[in-house]
Simulated scan of single mutants.
Amino acid sequence: MTTLSRRDLEILECLDSSPSLTAIARELGVSQPLISARLADLERECGQPLIVRTTTGFSPRPAAFRLARSARRALLALDAADDSFAALASNNATPAERVQIAASLTVAENLLPAWLALMGSPHDISVTVTNSRRVEALVTAGEAEVGFIEGPYPPTELSAWTITDDDLVLICRAVDPPELPAGPISARALIELPLVIREEGSGTREVLAEACLREDVRLPARLPQVSSAAAILQAVRHGSLAVVPELTVRDQVAAGEFRAIETTLGLHRSLRMVTKSGARLSPVARRLARIVRADR
């Protein structure tokens, strides 16, 4: 019976998230022939192919997805054991290098705290919270190892993994709401209402702008713009309308503070984790990425 090494687990973990064996080799800091040879050994030992090799990379077979999930859980357990051992030797430990990450407001406020809690023992992580366009710029420039963005499409210059989907919703205050036209709100009707929107570069604004364009409507420059989720909600409490992530206001809508309004816009987007293409992540950044992928 084959006993899998940590490197074997790391290779298997990458099968559901990397586009090619070359990308796996870069991520793990080894040669592509080594990855190819070891994967062939693993396929032979388990008695079936795990991937379909193509001219541009590979496609995982169903067994590869199952093994990737199992390998990720095993590696998280090994990470926890490493933490326990490191705690015993903490007096001799050298300070860890700070890891820079960047996150959009939606991810930073609703998902990132739980992921950081799952990191276990304290790690030196610095988080920049900004809009999605700025997150992409920070990762591209190497100023953040890992980024979290929101929007309708993945960036073309970065490696991206979909974390989850999150619809946007048009809301108003539930008590004494503004006067609204009958039926679902169209883009043309929406821009005539007291609407507050996010600033340029926001993933939420990008999805709203694209949805309006599908109905041949552009967001007018006269609309008030704010860069804070808290400020958006405060404006709604004072009588404005806003398009916000459903993830952000789910509890307030359920509690009756805000009211969700039906639209014709189809406000759908994905939340994604991004890294610089071809970059090898530090151990702490790789562990965070592992936690995020396991939480999908």
Rank of each mutant, 00 (worst) to 15 (best):
V99Q: 09
V169A: 05
E45A: 15
C14R: 03
A103S: 10
G120N: 06
E10I: 03
A64R: 08
F148I: 11
V127C: 10
L12Y: 06
N131K: 06
Q225H: 01
R218G: 14
L158N: 09
L111R: 08
L12V: 10
E192P: 06
P177R: 00
P60A: 11
V175W: 08
E13L: 11
L288E: 01
F65C: 09
L233R: 12
V30A: 09
P220G: 03
P19G: 03
R66G: 11
A117H: 10
G266S: 00
V292H: 00
T130K: 07
D41F: 15
V107Q: 03
L50R: 08
E206D: 15
E97M: 05
K276S: 10
T2F: 02
A160T: 13
S202P: 15
A209N: 13
V127L: 11
P177W: 03
R66C: 11
R269V: 09
A187S: 07
L219S: 14
L112C: 02
R72Q: 03
S104I: 04
S70C: 09
A102E: 06
L158I: 13
P62E: 02
S59Q: 06
P283Y: 07
E109C: 01
L267C: 02
A64M: 05
T55W: 09
N92V: 08
A63M: 11
L247K: 09
E200C: 13
L281Y: 08
V169W: 04
A23I: 09
I11G: 06
L195R: 03
P220C: 01
S20K: 01
V52N: 03
E262C: 06
I51P: 13
E157T: 12
A77M: 13
D251A: 12
T164N: 07
A141L: 12
P184R: 09
D82M: 14
A189K: 06
S59I: 12
T2H: 01
S104H: 08
E257I: 00
P177C: 05
G239M: 00
V284D: 12
R250T: 05
L247H: 09
D16K: 13
M273C: 11
T164W: 02
V30P: 12
A93H: 08
N131A: 04
F258L: 14
R61H: 06
T22P: 00
P184V: 00
L75P: 01
R72V: 08
V244R: 04
L34V: 08
V129I: 11
G239Y: 03
D41W: 15
R286E: 15
D295W: 10
E27M: 05
A63L: 05
A81Q: 14
A64Q: 04
G266Q: 04
E143D: 11
A255S: 08
A285G: 06
D165Y: 10
I191S: 13
I35A: 02
E109S: 07
V107L: 09
S17H: 12
A87P: 03
I149C: 06
L281K: 08
L265A: 04
F148Y: 06
E206L: 15
L88H: 14
D176E: 14
A102N: 08
R66T: 15
W115M: 06
A63C: 02
H268R: 15
R69D: 13
